[in-house]
């Protein structure tokens, strides 16, 4: 088991009222799963993803990631944990505009203190694997959306994470580009990477092996 959520809740105070973003959410993820989180806008999909990615806090419940109790961890420890095991892919790619493709790929490695030669090798590997060697010196603005997302995925993968969290990875892409990206996810999943994606689209959902449906912060089916 890769991670487990147990009665997890998150709320915000608004006008003296508790508004639940997530309420008593419990589920687990095994290594090699490909999970789609679905639900209407405001149902708490992204919040859930962010909590799994340790980018956001929760108020109640337990979260175990690879046998570590995340709710008890210190900030620093937590960040080490996600740095090592989790990769993120965003709807709007979130590449750094001032860096080239190659430099964007290199960035996570810089934060993990890989040596220069190793970084070069890993970046070259990724460029190869995603067929973007020719684009390595271009800036994000010079790429199409699909290409940018490709770089985004490559960047998420470069540090060899166990889990990829993708927040509507095809949301800004046309259907053809979207399909390509989903194919890559499927391929990665086959290679053993666990994937959790948040999506609106029924079509994308079908790429996954399991679906979690959220409504108003609670799991409806899962």
């Amino acid at each position: 088991m890769l991670l487990k959520l147990n009665n997890l809740s998150k709320w915000v105070q608004s006008g003296g009222q508790k508004i639940h973003l997530l309420k008593d959410v419990s589920f687990w993820v095994n290594e090699g799963d490909f999970i789609s989180v679905m639900g209407p806008s405001g149902s708490g999909k992204s919040t859930l993803l962010n909590i799994i990615g340790m980018l956001d806090d929760f108020n109640e419940g337990e979260y175990t990631f690879m046998d570590e109790a995340v709710h008890n961890l210190k900030e620093k420890h937590r960040s080490n944990l996600y740095k090592q095991y989790i990769g993120f892919v965003f709807q709007s790619y979130h590449l750094i505009d001032e860096l080239t493709v190659k430099e964007n790929l290199e960035m996570p490695l810089l934060y993990k203190k890989h040596g220069g030669a190793e970084r070069k090798a890993l970046v070259a590997d990724m460029l190869d694997r995603f067929n973007i060697v020719g684009k390595k010196d271009l800036f994000p603005a010079q790429l199409s959306g699909g290409q940018q997302q490709l770089v985004g995925i490559a960047r998420a993968l470069i540090a060899n994470p166990k889990l990829i969290l993708a927040d509507e990875p095809t949301g800004n892409l046309n259907s053809k580009q979207g399909e390509e990206i989903m194919d890559i996810f499927t391929q990665l999943n086959k290679e053993g990477v666990t994937i959790i994606q948040v999506t609106h689209s029924e079509k994308n959902m079908k790429y996954g092996s399991r679906v979690i449906n959220l409504l108003d912060g609670s799991i409806v089916t899962g």
């Binding site: 993120f88 979130h94 750094i96 001032e98």
Partner: peptide
């Protein structure tokens, strides 16, 4: 945005 990405990337 840059700060956010950098943070997410560790």
């Amino acid at each position: 945005k840059e700060v956010g990405i950098r943070k997410v990337l560790g």
